[in-house]
Simulated scan of single mutants.
Amino acid sequence: MVQSSIGQTKDVAFAGVAFAGEAAGLAQRFPYSLQYDKQLKAAKSSLFKRTYEYVAVNKPKNFNLSIQPVGDLKGSDQALVASLVMSSETVSVEHFGNIRKLFILLRGQALFFDFKSMNVVRAYPISFGYVDNFQHDPSPQEILERVRLVYEGSDNKPGIYGRYASAMAGATLPEQVSRYVQVSRASLSAEMAAVLPDYLKSTPGAKETWAADLVSEAISTRVGVPMVPYTKGYAVGNVMSMQVMDGEVFNLTLPKPDYEIEVDFKNVKKIKFSQSAGGTSYVYGTYADIRIHEPVSGAVYLQTSLKNGETKVVPASQTYVDDFPAYYDSANGMFVKLSEAIAGKSNPWIKTAASASDIDSQIEKTIKLMNLCK
C-alpha cells in the first residue's frame, strides 16, 4: 500500500487534456486529436474548454474542481490535480470488396495525481469507438470529422468528453492509505490473435494493451473502482510521461498495485446457430482465464476459466462478414457480466460461464477486495 499526502483534500485542480508518452512521439501517436485541437482553437475553443464544459454540467460529487493554473500549486503541501489523459488513438481503414470500413478508437484515463510527489493516486479508464462505412477511401477531413464525433459523442452515446465527466462525477478521493489494483498481465492465444484486425497486431504490445484495457474498463466502470493504468508501451518502469496542451510535461510515478489481475484469452469459436431465407445466425464464443491475487501474501481471490457467447445475424444480402465486432462483443460482454457480478448484481450467467465450482464464494471475496480499493 502507498501512503498518500492528500489526506482529506476536497479541492482538485483541473489540468485539462494531456497525452501519455514522450513528447517527441505525440504527433505520430495522436495525429487526428492534435488536428482536432487546432480546429477548436481556431474557433476560440480548446480541448481544455470543451472537456470542462461537460464536467461543469455533470459535476463531481466528492470534490470541488477548480480551473486555477496548475503552476499556482507549486510549493503547496497538499495539491491534487485531475486530467483527461489520452493513452491511445487508433484509426484504421479496412477493405471489404468495394466497402471501406473506418474504425476509430480513443482510449484515456480520468487520472488524478499528487502535484507535490508526482504520484498517480487515482485512474478511471474510459474509451469510445466509432465505425463508419464508405464506398471510397475516406479523406483525412472525413476521418477528422469522425474523430470529432468520438470526442463529442454520436448516436445518443456519450463520447470521450461525456464519459470523462461521468467518471469524474463518481470518482472518489483517496484516504490516507490507498490500495491499488491493476491488470498487470494480458495474453492472447494464437487463435484469439488471429481474429483481431491488423491494426491491433501491427505494433508490438498493441493486442495485449487492447485486452488489458478492455478488462480494466469493464471492471472500473461497473464496480466503480479506480485502476492503475496498464502502461506497457508508453511508460518506462513505473514512470509515465504526459504532456498537457500548454506544453508542460509531467513525469508521474505509478503506484505498485496491491492486487493484480491476470487475464489469458484462450480461444474463440464461431458456430452456425440457425439459417433462413433472410440470413444466418452465428454464435461467437470467447474463452478466457482470469486470476486476481495479492502478490505479497500469495492470496488468490478469484481464479477461474470463463466463456461467453453472443449471437450475430448476417443478412443473406450481405456480401462480406467482418467477424471481429462480434468477437469483441463476446469478449467485452464476458468481462462486463463478470464485473456486474463483482458489483453485487445477481446474474445466473456467472454459474454457467465460470468453471470454478466455488465461484460464488470467490465472487464474495472479490467484492470485499474491490471495496478496499475504492
Rank of each mutant, 00 (worst) to 15 (best):
L84T: 08
G224D: 10
S139R: 00
G333W: 02
E191W: 06
V283P: 00
A43C: 09
S274L: 09
A23W: 12
T253D: 10
E89T: 05
Q176P: 04
K201W: 03
E294P: 06
S202H: 08
L65M: 12
Q176W: 08
D246S: 12
A169F: 03
V283H: 09
K10C: 05
I160C: 03
V150G: 01
L111K: 07
L369T: 07
S305C: 08
A123D: 08
T221V: 06
P140C: 02
M86D: 03
T209D: 12
T253I: 12
F115Q: 14
F96D: 01
K232S: 14
H293F: 15
K272F: 07
V300G: 08
D198C: 01
T209A: 15
G333P: 04
Y259K: 06
S139C: 00
M118A: 13
I271C: 06
A23E: 14
G21I: 07
G170L: 04
F265C: 11
K374L: 14
F324T: 03
D258F: 06
I342R: 00
G162L: 07
P229D: 06
I367T: 11
D72N: 12
T231I: 11
V91N: 00
Q135C: 00
N238V: 09
K74D: 14
T304A: 05
F30Y: 13
A18P: 04
F335V: 10
Q68G: 11
N332H: 14
D358R: 12
V12G: 04
G153M: 00
T352R: 15
E248V: 14
P60S: 11
Q28T: 13
S83T: 14
A18Q: 04
L338F: 13
